[in-house]
Amino acid sequence: MLEAIAFYLLAGVAVLSAFAVVAARNPVHSVLFLILTFFNAAGLFVLLGAEFLAMLLIVVYVGAVAVLFLFVVMMLDVDFVELKQGFLKYMPLGGLVGAFLLGELILVTSAVRGSGLYTDSPAGLPDGVTNAERIGRVLYTDYLLLFQLAGLVLFVAMIGAIVLTLRRRDGVKRQDIHKQVGRTRKQGVESKDVLPGQGLG
């Protein structure tokens, strides 16, 4: 009973806020609704008994990715009126993409349901084995190669991002801490003998 209430509340808010992401006029509001959606999805994970995944969803998506979204969207200077005008123009294309996604989701769900992989109850965990341990065991044994490959892809992407954004310009004053700390009196101070009546010339 309580579980059902929790499920419908979380799922309902998730769907509504997902709709609001698209419907909201203000892009910052959209991102905030997106965060609400993530949060509710995490709640659904907890209901399924997958608390580790739920926490990861919050840490990674809500705590890091969405912050960057918000960061970028806030910096944009968006004209709300102009945004509204494009809505009808992009409606057919957006509708098409949405329809495809919905169709695929239905297909996948029915395929999994028919195959018997799907059970109504959360996966039975033996006592004392936590969620995190279970996932770790599978990830680092059976799927080690795939896991490492995924890590490699992320690594390459990270280096790519750095290379793309890194630019060295001439004439920019930079602070080099090592240089600064390593400077000795000899390098920094020059003593000159000032003769009376002549100055330094």
């Binding site: 910052v28 905030l32 965060i35 608390e51 926490m55 840490v59 936590t130 995190a132």
Partner: peptide, 25 residues
């Protein structure tokens, strides 16, 4: 007494930034 207590702490405290960034905006 959550099994993933420390992750929960980490997750919720990582949300703290929203209050500040929303207030600022």
């Amino acid at each position: 007494n959550l099994n993933v207590g420390i992750l929960y702490l980490f997750a919720i405290s990582s949300l703290g930034v929203y209050g500040i960034i929303m207030g600022g905006w």
